[in-house]
């Protein structure tokens, strides 16, 4: 096309005055650079703290029943699993800067598969560990008070049923639908490289 130079000339007439100055950009960066990852880090820190708190209690307090230790251990494990899953997904935010577009898209494809696996398997395992742990852990403390025992387990049952039969399926459906839509768009772009 003999008009490429014309197009280049037109292309370079784009007004870039609206861009912030370098000083303004530095200010914007210091304000926003951690915002995106803040929630992920919060989940990691909170779940680690919870796990270490539970483990510390198990070591400090002299519980009489084994199920209390099992329950506490399962809650701690589910917290650590949640932290590990989030730490793993953080990698994508830190390791991508040297990737070409094609490598980047292949990485995203792999990440999508990991996320679908998370919804189908990892999330179920974490919730199962946490559920069993939460049911076992308070038993020793409330077993001598029948009313408290009934109230505690009724409240736990309602809460856990809500999480298992309402929150999780809804999150699963929404998450997988979004991931599948992204995967289709991704495949479309990857095909453009062929």
């Amino acid at each position: 096309m003999d008009r490429l130079d014309d197009l280049k000339a037109i292309w370079h007439t784009a007004n870039t005055d609206s861009l912030p100055t370098s000083d303004e950009m530095v200010m914007l960066i210091s304000k926003f650079r951690n915002e995106k990852l803040r929630n992920k880090w919060l989940v990691i820190v909170a779940s680690c703290l919870l796990s270490f708190l539970i483990i510390s209690i198990l070591f400090i307090v002299d519980f009489k029943m084994v199920i209390t230790y099992i329950g506490g251990g399962l809650i701690a494990i589910s917290g650590l699993l949640l932290a590990a899953t989030n730490i793993r997904s953080l990698k994508r935010f830190y390791q991508l800067d040297y990737y070409s577009n094609q490598e980047f898209l292949l990485f995203i494809e792999q990440t999508l598969q990991n996320q679908i696996k998370y919804y189908k398997k990892t999330m179920v395992v974490i919730m199962a560990f946490c559920t069993v742990g939460v049911m076992l852990y308070p038993y020793e403390a409330v077993r001598q008070y029948p009313v408290l025992l009934i109230c505690t387990y009724a409240a736990l049952s309602i809460y856990l049923s809500f999480m298992w039969f309402f929150v999780r399926p809804r999150k699963f459906k929404k998450g997988v639908a979004k991931l599948n839509a992204t995967r289709l768009r991704l495949e479309n772009i990857l095909n453009q490289f062929k």
Binding site: D97, Y98, Y99, N101, F104, L105, I108, T182
Partner: peptide, 18 residues
């Protein structure tokens, strides 16, 4: 390096929008 980052950010938008 900079153009890779920029174009990958463009492509990453496919995750969050149509």
């Amino acid at each position: 390096w900079i153009f890779r980052i920029a174009t990958n950010h463009c492509l990453r938008a496919l995750e969050v929008s149509k």
